[in-house]
Amino acid sequence: MATDYVIAKQVSKHFGHQQVLNQIDLTLPAGMIYGLIGPSGAGKTTLIKSILGMEVVDSGTVKVMDTVMPNRAVMAQVGYMAQSDALYETLTARENLTLFGQLLSVPKIKLAQMIDYAAGLVDLTSQLDKRVSGYSGGMKRRLSLAIALIQDPQLLILDEPTVGIDPELRQQIWTELNKLKDTGKSMLVTTHVMDEAERCDYLMLIRHGIALAEGTPAALKQQYAVDTIEQVFMKAGRMQDANDGNS
Protein backbone atom coordinates (compact mmCIF):
# COMPACT_ATOMS: atom_id res chain seq x y z
CA MET A 1 0.00 0.00 0.00
CA ALA A 2 2.66 2.35 -1.02
CA THR A 3 0.64 4.76 -3.07
CA ASP A 4 -2.76 6.38 -3.01
CA TYR A 5 -4.61 5.88 -6.29
CA VAL A 6 -7.09 8.65 -5.66
CA ILE A 7 -6.65 11.78 -3.60
CA ALA A 8 -9.54 14.22 -3.62
CA LYS A 9 -9.27 17.34 -1.52
CA GLN A 10 -12.04 19.76 -0.62
CA VAL A 11 -14.00 18.99 -3.77
CA SER A 12 -16.99 21.28 -4.32
CA LYS A 13 -19.31 21.37 -7.28
CA HIS A 14 -22.61 23.00 -8.01
CA PHE A 15 -25.11 22.88 -10.85
CA GLY A 16 -27.02 26.13 -10.97
CA HIS A 17 -28.06 26.95 -7.43
CA GLN A 18 -27.76 23.40 -6.20
CA GLN A 19 -24.63 22.48 -4.27
CA VAL A 20 -23.99 18.92 -5.41
CA LEU A 21 -20.67 18.35 -3.68
CA ASN A 22 -19.58 20.25 -0.63
CA GLN A 23 -15.93 20.05 0.37
CA ILE A 24 -15.50 16.32 0.01
CA ASP A 25 -12.18 14.69 0.94
CA LEU A 26 -11.50 11.21 -0.32
CA THR A 27 -8.34 9.15 -0.31
CA LEU A 28 -8.22 5.74 -1.94
CA PRO A 29 -5.03 3.78 -1.33
CA ALA A 30 -3.95 0.75 -3.33
CA GLY A 31 -5.63 -2.53 -2.50
CA MET A 32 -8.87 -1.28 -1.03
CA ILE A 33 -12.58 -1.47 -1.78
CA TYR A 34 -13.98 1.93 -1.01
CA GLY A 35 -17.74 2.22 -0.76
CA LEU A 36 -19.77 5.35 -1.42
CA ILE A 37 -23.24 5.05 0.01
CA GLY A 38 -26.05 7.53 -0.04
CA PRO A 39 -29.53 8.10 -1.45
CA SER A 40 -30.18 8.96 -5.07
CA GLY A 41 -29.19 12.51 -5.84
CA ALA A 42 -26.71 12.61 -2.99
CA GLY A 43 -23.85 13.43 -5.34
CA LYS A 44 -22.20 10.02 -5.66
CA THR A 45 -22.19 9.97 -9.44
CA THR A 46 -20.99 13.57 -9.64
CA LEU A 47 -18.12 12.72 -7.29
CA ILE A 48 -17.21 9.75 -9.48
CA LYS A 49 -17.33 11.84 -12.63
CA SER A 50 -15.17 14.47 -10.98
CA ILE A 51 -12.61 11.82 -10.11
CA LEU A 52 -12.71 10.52 -13.68
CA GLY A 53 -12.18 14.05 -14.94
CA MET A 54 -15.44 14.18 -16.88
CA GLU A 55 -16.67 16.99 -14.69
CA VAL A 56 -14.66 20.02 -13.72
CA VAL A 57 -14.86 20.80 -10.03
CA ASP A 58 -15.56 24.32 -8.79
CA SER A 59 -12.91 24.16 -6.12
CA GLY A 60 -10.59 21.59 -4.62
CA THR A 61 -8.33 19.17 -6.44
CA VAL A 62 -8.57 15.61 -7.64
CA LYS A 63 -5.49 13.52 -8.25
CA VAL A 64 -5.60 10.09 -9.81
CA MET A 65 -2.35 8.14 -10.01
CA ASP A 66 -0.54 11.27 -8.86
CA THR A 67 -1.92 13.23 -11.82
CA VAL A 68 -4.22 16.19 -11.46
CA MET A 69 -7.55 15.49 -13.13
CA PRO A 70 -8.97 16.09 -15.64
CA ASN A 71 -6.33 14.28 -17.65
CA ARG A 72 -7.09 12.24 -20.72
CA ALA A 73 -4.14 9.87 -20.56
CA VAL A 74 -4.83 8.77 -17.01
CA MET A 75 -8.30 7.61 -18.04
CA ALA A 76 -6.71 4.57 -19.64
CA GLN A 77 -5.66 3.38 -16.19
CA VAL A 78 -9.17 3.56 -14.78
CA GLY A 79 -11.80 0.93 -15.40
CA TYR A 80 -15.20 2.57 -15.38
CA MET A 81 -18.65 1.11 -15.16
CA ALA A 82 -21.38 3.68 -15.59
CA GLN A 83 -24.67 3.72 -13.76
CA SER A 84 -26.63 3.13 -16.95
CA ASP A 85 -25.58 0.40 -19.32
CA ALA A 86 -24.01 2.27 -22.15
CA LEU A 87 -23.67 -0.53 -24.66
CA TYR A 88 -23.96 -0.79 -28.43
CA GLU A 89 -27.05 -2.96 -28.73
CA THR A 90 -26.63 -3.92 -32.36
CA LEU A 91 -23.14 -5.25 -31.67
CA THR A 92 -22.31 -8.53 -29.97
CA ALA A 93 -20.77 -8.60 -26.51
CA ARG A 94 -17.42 -9.52 -28.03
CA GLU A 95 -17.59 -6.57 -30.41
CA ASN A 96 -18.41 -4.24 -27.54
CA LEU A 97 -15.45 -5.55 -25.57
CA THR A 98 -13.19 -5.32 -28.61
CA LEU A 99 -14.22 -1.73 -29.28
CA PHE A 100 -13.45 -0.57 -25.77
CA GLY A 101 -10.27 -2.63 -25.68
CA GLN A 102 -9.11 -0.79 -28.81
CA LEU A 103 -10.10 2.58 -27.41
CA LEU A 104 -8.05 1.78 -24.30
CA SER A 105 -5.11 0.71 -26.46
CA VAL A 106 -5.03 -2.89 -25.30
CA PRO A 107 -2.46 -4.65 -27.50
CA LYS A 108 -4.03 -6.91 -30.12
CA ILE A 109 -2.43 -10.12 -28.84
CA LYS A 110 -3.55 -9.43 -25.32
CA LEU A 111 -7.07 -8.38 -26.27
CA ALA A 112 -8.54 -11.82 -27.04
CA GLN A 113 -7.09 -13.10 -23.81
CA MET A 114 -8.53 -10.19 -21.83
CA ILE A 115 -11.95 -10.66 -23.42
CA ASP A 116 -11.98 -14.30 -22.32
CA TYR A 117 -10.84 -13.35 -18.84
CA ALA A 118 -13.35 -10.51 -18.37
CA ALA A 119 -16.23 -12.52 -19.85
CA GLY A 120 -15.36 -15.50 -17.65
CA LEU A 121 -15.37 -13.28 -14.61
CA VAL A 122 -18.93 -12.15 -15.20
CA ASP A 123 -20.09 -15.52 -16.53
CA LEU A 124 -20.82 -14.40 -20.09
CA THR A 125 -18.39 -16.63 -21.99
CA SER A 126 -21.13 -18.66 -23.66
CA GLN A 127 -23.08 -15.55 -24.68
CA LEU A 128 -20.18 -13.56 -26.09
CA ASP A 129 -21.25 -13.72 -29.72
CA LYS A 130 -24.86 -12.83 -29.08
CA ARG A 131 -26.05 -9.32 -29.84
CA VAL A 132 -26.54 -7.15 -26.79
CA SER A 133 -30.10 -6.30 -27.88
CA GLY A 134 -31.02 -9.85 -26.88
CA TYR A 135 -29.47 -9.52 -23.43
CA SER A 136 -31.39 -9.33 -20.16
CA GLY A 137 -30.85 -6.40 -17.81
CA GLY A 138 -28.55 -8.43 -15.59
CA MET A 139 -26.48 -9.63 -18.53
CA LYS A 140 -26.02 -6.06 -19.73
CA ARG A 141 -24.84 -5.07 -16.27
CA ARG A 142 -22.33 -7.89 -16.28
CA LEU A 143 -21.11 -6.93 -19.71
CA SER A 144 -20.61 -3.37 -18.48
CA LEU A 145 -18.49 -4.72 -15.67
CA ALA A 146 -16.50 -6.84 -18.10
CA ILE A 147 -15.82 -3.72 -20.18
CA ALA A 148 -14.52 -1.95 -17.07
CA LEU A 149 -12.03 -4.79 -16.64
CA ILE A 150 -10.92 -5.05 -20.26
CA GLN A 151 -7.63 -3.19 -19.94
CA ASP A 152 -6.77 -4.80 -16.58
CA PRO A 153 -6.73 -1.46 -14.77
CA GLN A 154 -5.29 -0.83 -11.34
CA LEU A 155 -8.23 1.33 -10.37
CA LEU A 156 -11.88 0.42 -10.92
CA ILE A 157 -14.67 2.92 -10.53
CA LEU A 158 -17.98 1.11 -10.41
CA ASP A 159 -21.24 3.04 -10.28
CA GLU A 160 -23.87 0.71 -8.80
CA PRO A 161 -22.30 -2.42 -10.25
CA THR A 162 -24.70 -5.02 -8.94
CA VAL A 163 -28.10 -3.49 -9.73
CA GLY A 164 -30.24 -6.11 -11.44
CA ILE A 165 -27.82 -8.94 -10.86
CA ASP A 166 -29.17 -11.99 -9.07
CA PRO A 167 -27.85 -12.75 -5.56
CA GLU A 168 -25.80 -15.75 -6.60
CA LEU A 169 -23.92 -13.87 -9.28
CA ARG A 170 -23.56 -10.88 -7.00
CA GLN A 171 -21.85 -13.15 -4.50
CA GLN A 172 -19.57 -14.35 -7.28
CA ILE A 173 -18.73 -10.83 -8.39
CA TRP A 174 -17.82 -9.76 -4.89
CA THR A 175 -15.56 -12.76 -4.53
CA GLU A 176 -13.88 -11.68 -7.76
CA LEU A 177 -13.58 -8.07 -6.62
CA ASN A 178 -11.88 -9.27 -3.47
CA LYS A 179 -9.49 -11.36 -5.52
CA LEU A 180 -8.68 -8.30 -7.62
CA LYS A 181 -8.11 -6.34 -4.47
CA ASP A 182 -5.59 -8.91 -3.31
CA THR A 183 -3.53 -8.27 -6.45
CA GLY A 184 -3.20 -4.65 -5.39
CA LYS A 185 -6.09 -3.16 -7.34
CA SER A 186 -8.44 -0.64 -5.78
CA MET A 187 -12.12 -0.17 -6.30
CA LEU A 188 -14.40 2.78 -5.73
CA VAL A 189 -17.94 1.42 -5.57
CA THR A 190 -21.24 3.20 -5.14
CA THR A 191 -24.13 1.19 -3.86
CA HIS A 192 -27.64 1.29 -2.50
CA VAL A 193 -27.46 -2.19 -1.16
CA MET A 194 -26.51 -2.13 2.50
CA ASP A 195 -25.22 -5.67 2.73
CA GLU A 196 -22.79 -4.74 -0.03
CA ALA A 197 -21.68 -1.79 2.01
CA GLU A 198 -20.71 -4.22 4.72
CA ARG A 199 -18.28 -5.89 2.30
CA CYS A 200 -16.35 -2.70 1.66
CA ASP A 201 -13.13 -2.00 3.47
CA TYR A 202 -13.98 1.62 3.96
CA LEU A 203 -17.18 3.59 3.63
CA MET A 204 -18.23 7.14 3.02
CA LEU A 205 -21.80 8.25 3.63
CA ILE A 206 -22.86 11.05 1.31
CA ARG A 207 -26.09 12.97 1.66
CA HIS A 208 -26.97 16.32 0.06
CA GLY A 209 -23.43 16.57 -1.23
CA ILE A 210 -21.91 16.35 2.22
CA ALA A 211 -19.74 13.56 3.56
CA LEU A 212 -21.73 12.67 6.68
CA ALA A 213 -19.50 10.00 8.01
CA GLU A 214 -16.65 7.76 6.98
CA GLY A 215 -14.68 4.86 8.32
CA THR A 216 -14.54 1.09 8.20
CA PRO A 217 -17.96 -0.56 8.51
CA ALA A 218 -17.12 -1.79 12.01
CA ALA A 219 -15.94 1.62 13.17
CA LEU A 220 -19.05 3.31 11.83
CA LYS A 221 -21.35 0.87 13.58
CA GLN A 222 -19.47 1.43 16.78
CA GLN A 223 -19.50 5.19 16.36
CA TYR A 224 -23.26 5.33 15.92
CA ALA A 225 -23.84 2.50 18.40
CA VAL A 226 -25.96 0.43 16.01
CA ASP A 227 -25.80 -3.11 14.58
CA THR A 228 -26.03 -2.54 10.83
CA ILE A 229 -24.76 -0.04 8.26
CA GLU A 230 -28.38 0.59 7.32
CA GLN A 231 -29.02 1.89 10.79
CA VAL A 232 -25.84 3.97 10.67
CA PHE A 233 -27.08 5.50 7.49
CA MET A 234 -30.52 6.34 8.82
CA LYS A 235 -29.21 7.69 12.09
CA ALA A 236 -26.67 9.89 10.35
CA GLY A 237 -29.38 11.15 8.03
CA ARG A 238 -31.67 12.08 10.88
CA MET A 239 -28.84 13.91 12.61
CA GLN A 240 -28.12 15.86 9.45
CA ASP A 241 -31.76 16.87 9.07
CA ALA A 242 -31.84 17.90 12.76
CA ASN A 243 -28.75 20.05 12.27
CA ASP A 244 -30.24 21.68 9.16
CA GLY A 245 -33.36 22.44 11.16
CA ASN A 246 -31.33 24.12 13.90
CA SER A 247 -29.24 26.25 11.69
Binding site: R72, A73, M75, A82, A86, E89, F100, L103
Partner: peptide, 14 residues
Protein backbone atom coordinates in the same frame (compact mmCIF):
# COMPACT_ATOMS: atom_id res chain seq x y z
CA UNK B 1 -29.25 9.38 -25.13
CA UNK B 2 -28.11 5.81 -24.51
CA UNK B 3 -25.06 7.07 -22.67
CA UNK B 4 -22.53 5.43 -24.97
CA UNK B 5 -21.10 8.83 -25.90
CA UNK B 6 -20.43 9.55 -22.26
CA UNK B 7 -19.00 6.06 -21.87
CA UNK B 8 -16.74 6.57 -24.89
CA UNK B 9 -15.52 9.78 -23.35
CA UNK B 10 -14.57 7.91 -20.17
CA UNK B 11 -11.78 6.35 -22.23
CA UNK B 12 -8.69 8.29 -23.35
CA UNK B 13 -10.21 8.86 -26.78
CA UNK B 14 -9.89 12.41 -28.11
Amino acid sequence: TTGTLSRLLATPIR
